[in-house]
Amino acid sequence: MSRYALQPEDGQFIEEFMKTPIGHHSPGLQRVLNVMRGGELEGKYVLVIIEPYRKWALGRLPARRGAPISLVDGVEYSCQLQAERDVFARRWKDLTGDDIGSALNGEGSTRA
């Protein structure tokens, strides 16, 4: 379990990620990403490469390491940047209960 939980003020980093999902990030955004990438594995959204550099699918991790990843029906991407943005938004919602749009507008209640 992560020691840090996302806070309402972490919403300021959403726009930074959406602008540049891949590459170097500010320390604040990197902290947010570390929280999103840490924690429980079961059910965590991930990208599955279907065709290198061309096609990705949305998957969910199993409870046990080494077990098969389950693909989310009908969710595929042809752009890695869009795929990364979607996974970020889905993980944000899982961790906070808020949609990205409400977090950008300062609405909603982020869990502590």
Rank of each mutant, 00 (worst) to 15 (best):
residue 3 R to N: 14
residue 111 R to Q: 13
residue 90 R to T: 09
residue 81 L to K: 07
residue 60 R to A: 05
residue 32 V to G: 00
residue 66 G to E: 01
residue 46 V to D: 05
residue 45 Y to V: 06
residue 95 L to V: 08
residue 74 G to V: 07
residue 104 L to V: 13
residue 109 S to H: 09
residue 56 W to S: 07
residue 11 G to H: 08
residue 77 Y to G: 06
residue 36 M to Q: 14
residue 59 G to H: 07
residue 40 E to P: 12
residue 28 G to K: 15
residue 37 R to Q: 14
residue 71 L to N: 01
residue 108 G to L: 03
residue 48 V to R: 09
residue 52 P to Y: 09
residue 62 P to Q: 09
residue 67 A to H: 15
residue 57 A to S: 14
residue 33 L to M: 15
residue 82 Q to R: 13
residue 70 S to C: 14
residue 18 M to N: 04
residue 27 P to F: 10
residue 28 G to N: 12
residue 59 G to E: 07
residue 4 Y to P: 01
residue 49 I to S: 08
residue 1 M to S: 14
residue 51 E to N: 15
residue 70 S to H: 15
residue 1 M to H: 15
residue 76 E to I: 14
residue 17 F to P: 01
residue 90 R to Q: 06
residue 66 G to W: 02
residue 20 T to C: 08
residue 52 P to D: 02
residue 69 I to F: 13
residue 66 G to V: 12
residue 49 I to A: 09
residue 20 T to D: 11
residue 73 D to L: 01
residue 97 G to Y: 05
residue 26 S to R: 02
residue 88 F to W: 01
residue 77 Y to K: 04
residue 30 Q to P: 00
residue 111 R to K: 15
residue 14 I to G: 03
residue 108 G to S: 07
residue 32 V to R: 00
residue 81 L to M: 08
residue 33 L to Y: 07
residue 36 M to V: 07
residue 18 M to W: 12
residue 43 G to M: 14
residue 8 P to F: 03
residue 53 Y to M: 15
residue 15 E to V: 06
residue 86 D to H: 14
residue 36 M to G: 05
residue 4 Y to T: 06
residue 86 D to V: 06
residue 61 L to N: 13
residue 76 E to L: 08
residue 49 I to W: 04
residue 84 E to V: 03
residue 54 R to N: 14
residue 57 A to N: 04
residue 45 Y to P: 06
residue 71 L to S: 10
residue 4 Y to C: 02
residue 111 R to L: 13
residue 31 R to I: 03
residue 26 S to C: 09
residue 80 Q to C: 11
residue 97 G to Q: 04
residue 55 K to D: 08
residue 92 W to T: 08
residue 102 S to W: 07
residue 78 S to G: 11
residue 101 G to C: 11
residue 41 L to C: 09
residue 106 G to D: 10
residue 101 G to E: 15
residue 101 G to A: 13
residue 53 Y to W: 11
residue 95 L to W: 10
residue 51 E to M: 11
residue 87 V to R: 05
residue 93 K to E: 13
residue 16 E to A: 03
residue 101 G to L: 07
residue 89 A to T: 04
residue 20 T to K: 13
residue 35 V to P: 01
residue 102 S to R: 12
residue 10 D to E: 02
residue 75 V to I: 15
residue 104 L to I: 12
residue 46 V to K: 10
residue 70 S to T: 15
residue 75 V to H: 00
residue 15 E to W: 00
residue 103 A to K: 04
residue 86 D to R: 02
residue 73 D to S: 15
residue 84 E to N: 03
residue 71 L to A: 12
residue 66 G to L: 11
residue 18 M to R: 02
residue 56 W to R: 01
residue 96 T to E: 02
residue 15 E to C: 07
residue 9 E to W: 10
residue 43 G to H: 09
residue 38 G to V: 05
residue 84 E to A: 07
residue 21 P to R: 05
residue 110 T to I: 10
residue 43 G to Y: 06
residue 49 I to F: 00
